[in-house]
Write a protein that binds this DNA or RNA. Structure first.
Lengths: 141, 141
DNA sequence: ATGAAGCTTGTAGCGACTATAAGGTCAAGT
DNA sequence: ACTTGACCTTATAGTCGCTACAAGCTTCAT
């Protein structure tokens, strides 16, 4: 049995998180209060490392800390249905797909703007014009 | 000649911005300090409306307020080359494309996770497992 | 005259960190 | 034994782009 423990810095290393972020997660109650050694240093177990990994992977998938709080709560009830978990995943998937669409809209608009730049001066710039701006004559010589 | 003026609320209406946001833009110096009428209300001209429109369209394209500060500075120098403007657009386009790629990665990962849910209980849930979490036995009956 | 809507200012809050300060602890080297 | 440097502790404030709230003044329609 592995009884390896971690300091906050080692846990940071092992999970690709910053130590300050780990303390932040503890402060907001996303992670439980860590045990302390004689001099007050936080001490973590492999299980806590896994929990943090779960948090970080969920974050990387786009879940908010509130979402993750819910996911952890769900995950801790081993005998409950995982339908709620799947629902969360599906919902996030929908959000991500919507974001992709939005971004593709931006991409097209930026392409259009870029292509209409002929390399002249601001005064005739179609980009600025396209963005709805007619600068004043403060600098018109 | 149109000498129409706007109150902050009318400007909000005309540009799809909230009045508080307009005041916020003024406070951080993104928009110049507005003129005031006798009772201290802000009074805007059509030119200021256009400037705000430019800000909002740029925001909608994904530019940060700092980016927009730069764009406005560029746009106000009518005789300068618009190469710098085009560079900003191109750079943002690259960022947007990168974001789309990232999001598509997320999309795939979420699809994979969702498809591996067989509708059982958390204990056997591949989703939770895939996210690197092995819950403790606090709830194991 | 009254009430609602709109304006003013200032301050505090959101999410998810990040940065800074001021100090305590530990291991290694001299 | 002492110093150095890396690590740990706490608390507080800052980031971005707003949003919300409070407390009061103005304008407008009824």
């Amino acid at each position: 049995m592995s009884t390896r423990t971690f300091t906050v810095g080692q846990l940071a290393q092992a999970t690709g998180t910053r130590a300050v972020t780990i303390r932040y997660y503890e402060r907001i109650g996303l992670l439980p209060s860590a045990a302390r050694n004689a001099s007050g240093y936080r001490v973590y177990t492999a299980q806590e490392r896994d929990r943090l990994r779960f948090v970080r992977r969920s974050r990387a998938l786009g879940f908010s800390l509130e979402d993750i709080r819910d996911l952890l709560e769900l995950a801790d009830h081993r005998r409950s249905s995982c339908a709620a978990v799947d629902a969360k995943i599906t919902q996030k998937l929908e959000q991500v797909r919507q974001s992709i669409c939005d971004m593709q809209g931006l991409e097209q608009e930026l392409e259009r703007l870029s292509s209409c730049c002929q390399g002249g001066v601001i005064e005739e710039c179609r980009i600025i014009e396209s963005l709805g701006y007619e600068p004043g004559d403060g600098h018109r010589r």
